[in-house]
């Protein structure tokens, strides 16, 4: 049987959720018998292939216009979209920024950080513009939500295994966590 194609990408994320994917350890190797990871931010190919994948996984919140583009591209190129982690599911820790004025936040990040010397707020046209931080489902339709900061490897393994069995995963017990 052909392998199920899976692509992942990250938005405004800390990489913790992708670490949790790797933390599936040998179970990840088992999964790779059945799935093909076409692209991830931590492998050579970064973007989901044009011809599309069955499962797309997004970690991180929507925090700028680039995130919106990445989320839309993933949505277009996958059949089932998973929002993985609190940032993708709720906006998560990134939403802390919403409680401050944007300029205040940018200044704090690029100028006032203790380790910064002669800091400047980046203003290149090529960069995405910051937007109000929100969950992925506020921008594109999400089919499966796996909260957690990060979600446990068990929860991720469970969700992918259920999908491979043709079932929509329903998280319960220790698999459903917000922290």
């Amino acid at each position: 049987m052909a392998k199920v194609k899976v692509a992942t990408d990250w938005l405004a994320a800390c990489a913790g959720c992708h670490m949790s994917v790797l933390d599936m350890d040998e179970r990840l190797v088992q999964l790779l018998d059945k799935i093909e990871l076409t692209s991830t931010p931590i492998t050579d190919l970064k973007h989901p292939p044009k011809e599309g994948v069955t499962v797309g996984i997004l970690t991180g919140a929507i925090s700028n216009t680039t995130n919106i583009e990445v989320a839309k591209q993933m949505r277009e190129r996958c059949q089932i979209l998973i929002a993985l982690g609190d940032c993708a599911v709720f906006g998560g820790i990134v939403t802390m920024r919403n409680f401050f004025d944007m300029n205040e936040a940018l200044k704090r990040a690029y100028v006032e950080t203790e380790s910064t010397v002669d800091g400047k707020i980046p203003c290149s046209e090529e960069l995405g513009r910051p937007v109000r931080v929100c969950a992925v489902n506020q921008v594109v339709k999400v089919d499966i939500h796996i909260p957690g900061c990060p979600p446990s490897p068990d929860a991720i393994y469970y969700a992918l295994s259920e999908l491979l069995e043709g079932r929509i995963p329903v998280l319960t017990g220790d698999n459903l966590k917000y922290d």
Binding site: D86, V142, P147, L176, Y178
Partner: peptide, 27 residues
Amino acid sequence: NHYCMYCEMSGDCELQALAYRYGLDHW
């Protein structure tokens, strides 16, 4: 602000416990 991941009460919060009980996986 009910982002549990940086809340002191996370783990013992009664609101969170109810959300778990009713399988709230997104808003």
